[in-house]
Design a binder for these strands. Structure first.
Lengths: 305, 305
DNA sequence: ATGGAGCATTAGTGCTTGTGATGGTACCGA
DNA sequence: TCGGTACCATCACAAGCACTAATGCTCCAT
């Protein structure tokens, strides 16, 4: 295999027309240059350079090698540059996935911050339920994903590198004119007779709501389903029923509804970021993770509301 | 500078999905492969490869490098191939120059032989008088030149690598019906009264003819000049005059003229091949030189006629 | 002649690149 | 649960590589 360093030295020698000058330019001794060229010549089995009174010139063989040198170095340089771009988060790509209700606050802010910090990175975003995202993350379809889980569901996300972001409580939303809206110490059992609004029955959120209701001793009567928490808020505000809504989906509250915590404690979901542990995550993923962590801290600090 | 050997090793590791398999394929120990990848990773400052249960995979950074690897290796390969072609006289070029009267025999045969032996070499031919060719050869315009000189003219061709080819005598050509055509022991002085046909008066041949005539005690009366020895032969055959013609230009003799040697000895020119000593001659030049030497030997052996 | 410029050569040194042996870990089958 | 196996990392070491410093050689100009 052609030796790049020696090829570079050869180029310098021919360009400057002198071993000594090349040595100086490359910050080598003249001896090192002489030996490098000699070695290249013995490796290639060709006389590459001719020394005469006027200086040093390339032979036909040397000219052939040097004719390719620029292209080779350009190619190598391109590889190094692209690598540096990826490492410096100035290039490459980041395939992000998240669950839908992160779309309200966390994702838009994080994406905006990322794009302004790292405009060179090609950023893509897919939405889906954690159960759907996780295997695709494992398969290498995504570099980074925003997921959530309820207590006891950890087994779905094994084999992923997880970083906890937010402990996201679910609060109860009631129409403002609802009789219970005046109370501040609601328990789930107080809501056993209400009409409930939920996300799709197969979604993790809906299943968890049903499960905690069972724990409180009743079967919720589900009157509407929507996977869009903004729609859910609208339905509650319109008096259609009550809903358990994650705080993440409550950053913009509709008029016409009130939000109450549950006693003795709220259902809670754990929001986390994950990378497919088996494939090396690009540096851009770490950069995004830093941003997400920062946003998460701000979200938590934003108060208990 | 990116290390090509290590890049190759990285590629093999990723392609085979295993350090051990790569080691076997490359005929290294597994340890060497492991160290090479580790070194490449520390040089680039990036994790290039991720080891997990299922095997070894490239990270985003590794994928970037490997994305360039094929192009780099192809480029290097192209350089090596072209060098090998030049060295093996399967490629490259050969810029040949010769004096015009070599065109009759030596050059056509040599060119034909060369092209059939080395079809990959781009061969070009320029014609000119030695005085014109020599400086262009020194300047690197030609790789190989066919030149001639008369005794005492060596100074024109200093700084060239010369290889003697033919001792080329000049014989006297007379019309067949000329009274002297019956004689076989002609001297120059016998021809003092003849009309002479020559090449251009500034050419080395013509100057030499004049000079030897002076030596024989007369000024030749030049009636015609032509740089084409075939034309000169025609003029002699037509009875216009006599001419001193190099044997090289007499391989095809016109009817109507006779050729006689001069006593006590013929003027003679030395035909030789030369390379510009300062620039390394391409291997193709040596190949052509071999052919020319062979042809020259055959020409000499062809008899004293 | 003499000195300078420039390349080659040599000896020496630290580093690189291999090998072989060993150790740790994950997985697999009894 | 316990070896056995497959695989990668690491270590110690040897050979060779890639430099430096010093010296020699040749050509050239003064």
């Amino acid at each position: 295999m052609l030796h790049l360093t020696r090829l570079k030295i050869l180029g310098e020698v021919v360009q400057r027309g002198s071993f000594s000058a090349a040595a100086e330019a490359l910050d080598y001794t003249q001896s090192a240059v002489s030996q490098a060229v000699a070695r290249l010549e013995s490796e290639t089995g060709a006389v590459l350079v001719v020394r005469d009174r006027r200086g040093v010139r390339a032979t036909a063989a040397g000219a052939v090698l040097l004719g390719h040198a620029d292209a080779i170095f350009a190619q190598v340089r391109a590889a190094e540059d692209e690598l540096a771009a990826v490492l410096g988060v100035r290039g490459g790509r980041l395939r992000l996935a998240s669950f839908p209700s992160a779309g309200a606050t966390l994702i838009p802010q994080a994406v905006a911050a990322f794009r302004s910090l790292h405009p060179g990175v090609e950023l893509s975003l897919a939405e889906g339920e954690p159960e759907e995202i996780a295997p695709r993350l494992r398969a290498g379809e995504f570099d980074l994903a925003l997921l959530f889980q309820f207590p006891g569901q950890e087994q779905h996300f094994q084999g992923l590198d997880k970083i906890a972001l937010i402990h996201d409580p679910m609060w109860i939303a009631l129409p403002v004119e609802h009789p219970l809206a005046r109370h501040h110490n609601l328990t789930l059992a107080d809501l056993a007779a209400e009409d409930w609004i939920q996300t799709s029955i197969n979604s993790a959120c809906a299943r968890h709501v049903v499960s905690v209701c069972h724990g409180a001793g009743f079967e919720p009567r589900v009157s509407f389903e929507s996977d869009d928490y903004d729609t859910v808020q609208g339905l509650v505000a319109a008096g259609v029923g009550v809903a358990l809504i994650p705080r993440l989906a409550l950053s913009h509250r509709r008029p016409g509804l009130v939000v109450r915590r549950l006693e003795p404690e709220n259902p809670v979901r754990q929001v986390f970021a994950a990378t497919g542990a088996q494939a090396g995550a690009p540096p851009a993923a770490q950069a995004m993770l830093d941003i997400l962590s920062q946003r998460a801290r701000e979200f938590v600090a934003q108060g208990e509301d």
